[in-house]
Design a protein around this nucleic acid. Structure first.
Length: 476
DNA sequence: TCTGGGGTCCTGATCCGG
DNA sequence: TCTGCCGGATCAGGACCC
């Protein structure tokens, strides 16, 4: 999908169409998740600090991400892809590989192109958003093709043309070549893909190490035989928070770690998994990041066990100077938990007492666990009232109907009243406590989606004419 | 006004048991 | 019993991706 989050927001909010839109964290330390193409023209791009984006595009609309909406759209798109092949490998909410051959819908360039064009039409009809399609004989090339096709396009790489196509491209085009590797290669005089192919495998291995060197050399020659893998089990679950202001108070740090551990376990349990290794992540005031991990005797999904392991790991970390970010994760996932959880909890407690015998007073321990219990009681959505009206979120007003929060502050909230299918709407301001104003669920982006329920069975044999919309016969 | 959040994979050091 | 070697597990950090 093209500039996915920003496009979804523009589709939801008619007044933002054609205007620069930036979606990301709005806190003091936020970064850009997605910028609309209008904002990109002003120099705003993903991962840029929000403050810098605001300097470049002071008049852009700044919105927090609404993952529930994006997930809904993503599910719609993935469902359409699933009709083309049993082999669909999602990379993220807005990107996936599809093995068309395995689905029997395409066996040559012409049929693949036909399916690709139809897919774009159907995605647009169902979601209201544009997507780009890359078609090629391997995942690597399909991905490069889709990047080249953006926005709102399709590109097919003909078999046999791969190497010459790749040759002049910057090394950064290849997956796995980021800033560090790119620099490394540049210092060795390699800036485009053909340089890598010419350098030879041994030289790349010498420069980058075994796995990376071998993989890169293969890719540079256009060779990539990784299969499309439909189902991939998660290998870890983690949560992390960056704080608006560095944390200095050791007790507060510990409370936050326990809160994060609880959130992490909640996720773990939602996924019906357990994990054996607990990881604590600490980013300090100077952005230096360290991780500490501890492997338990068996997998667990017990919040007490994870919380205490994380707290033990924290004991070994020097946080003087301040903490910018804390994270808690679990790896070594399994589908079961150790039978004897009670014994494990007791073990963990025992170990904690041994390792922390000198510095943790009973008062501290009690205080910390009480804090964690309080956080638990507030729940994951337990934000202070001031945060209730988040920029971009939907609201419903008793008189004015459906709208979205344009901004809030000093006791007031500004709302624009419009829906995805209305013309740009009026703006009104209310007191934050106005009882007529309530948070609302996102509206669908398309009011009357075209009925593509029989696609791709209704695949026409040529590209001329629209995809027919037929009666739904097959849906369950 | 510097730098999110949730992941994956790889490498090198260290430890430990056979 | 001592020593050396080897391999697996664990741990920490770095790079990368969306």
């Amino acid at each position: 999908m093209d500039a996915f989050y920003a496009s979804a927001e523009q589709a939801a909010k008619p007044s933002l169409r054609g205007k620069p839109v930036v979606v990301g964290g709005l806190g003091m330390r936020g970064v850009v998740a997605t910028a609309s193409y209008e904002a990109r023209r002003l120099g705003v791009h993903s991962a840029m600090p929000m403050a810098q984006a605001r300097r470049l595009a002071p008049n852009a609309a700044y919105l927090v991400p609404r993952f529930a909406l994006y997930r809904t759209v993503s599910d719609q798109v993935m469902e359409l892809l699933g009709r083309l092949s049993p082999l669909v490998e999602p990379l993220s909410l807005d990107e996936a590989f599809v093995d068309l051959e395995a689905g029997g819908v395409a066996d040559d360039s012409a049929s693949a192109r036909l399916v690709g064009e139809q897919l774009r039409t159907v995605i647009k009809g169902v979601t209201g958003l544009s997507g780009s399609v890359g078609l090629a004989g391997s995942k690597m090339l399909a991905k490069i093709a889709s990047e080249e096709a953006k926005p709102d396009g399709l590109l097919l790489i003909e078999p046999g043309t791969e190497r010459e196509l790749l040759a002049p491209m910057p090394v950064r085009t290849l997956a796995g070549v980021g800033p560090a590797t790119g620099d490394h290669l540049r210092r060795a005089g390699m800036t485009v893909v053909s340089h890598l192919a010419e350098a030879g495998e041994a030289e790349l291995v010498r420069l980058l190490g075994k796995a990376h060197g071998v993989a890169l050399h293969r890719m540079a020659r256009g060779y990539d035989d990784r299969p499309v893998v439909a189902e991939r089990d998660a290998k870890s679950v983690s949560v992390e928070d960056t704080f608006d202001v560095d944390l200095h108070d050791r007790v507060r740090v510990r409370t936050e770690v326990e809160r994060l551990a609880d959130r992490c376990v909640r996720r773990l349990r939602n996924a019906e998994r357990s994990g054996r290794t607990v990881v604590l992540k600490v980013r300090r005031y100077d952005f230096s990041t360290l991780t500490r991990s501890e492997t338990l005797r068996g997998p667990t999904d017990d919040p007490t066990v994870v919380r205490e392991a994380a707290a033990r790991l924290l004991e070994a970390v020097d946080t003087t100077g301040g903490v910018r970010l804390l994270g808690v994760g679990v790896t070594g996932l399994a589908d079961f938990t150790q039978e004897d959880l009670f014994a494990q909890a007791a073990d963990a407690e025992h170990a904690a007492e041994e390792s922390a015998v000198a510095d943790a007073t009973p008062e501290e321990r009690d205080g910390a666990s009480e804090g964690a219990a309080g956080a638990e009681a507030r729940g994951s959505e337990g934000q202070p009232a001031a945060r209730r009206w988040q920029a971009g979120h939907d609201v419903q007003h008793d008189v004015h109907g459906h709208g979205w929060v344009q901004g809030s502050g000093v006791g007031r909230v500004t709302v624009r009243f419009e829906e995805p299918w209305t013309p740009p709407g009026r703006v009104r301001t209310f007191l934050v406590g106005d009882p007529a104003l309530r948070p609302a669920d996102p509206l669908p982006l398309v009011r009357d989606p075209v009925d593509y329920s029989s696609w791709p069975a209704s695949l026409p044999k040529s590209l001329s004419g629209p995809v027919p919309a037929e009666e739904d016969e097959s849906s369950p």
